[in-house]
């Protein structure tokens, strides 16, 4: 049972919002005492996802949550946009696959950096990606 202890919404409308957003995530990660390596993994994952959001949907919103399960605390990030959506999620999750001009590491790479990863997308309506990193995960 995962309990949400606090939440904070950040809207992303342009590229310059990315660095302040990363700092907000870092603040929360530091607050729960997450170690530097896990912090770096979480923030890197967040950076990949927020870039996808800007690139494909133009803008979106991220909810930053501090969560707990038993004695373990973690950070959950929910990225939602109203962009074009992803027609084939399985394909998008493959290493090296990209429709844009990237290396195609974004989604599969991001999944490797976090403990939980969930993606829901409807073509024409948008995409929601949820990631969770436990403090000691």
């Amino acid at each position: 049972m995962i309990t949400t202890l606090s939440k904070d919404n950040v809207s992303i409308t342009r590229e310059q919002d990315v660095v302040p957003f990363r700092n907000r995530v870092k603040e929360q990660a530091v607050r729960i005492g997450m170690g530097l390596v896990n912090q770096t993994k979480l923030i890197t994952a967040a950076s990949e996802l927020v870039r996808n959001m800007i690139r494909y949907a133009g803008q979106g919103e991220v909810r930053i949550e501090v969560v707990s399960k038993g004695r373990e605390a973690g950070i959950r990030l929910i990225f939602s946009d109203n962009g074009p959506g992803i027609p084939d999620i399985n394909l998008a999750m493959q290493d090296g696959y990209s429709t844009g001009k990237s290396l195609g590491l974004g989604l599969p790479g991001t999944r490797r950096l976090v403990n939980e990863f969930d993606i829901k997308s409807t073509v024409g309506q948008g995409t929601t990606v949820t990631i969770l990193k436990w403090k000691n995960g």
């Binding site: 770096t40 993994k41 890197t44 990949e48 290493d95 490797r112």
Partner: peptide
């Protein structure tokens, strides 16, 4: 921490 993350990212 950056080196660890980079390699896991791929």
């Amino acid at each position: 921490a950056v080196a660890i993350t980079l390699i896991e990212l791929g």
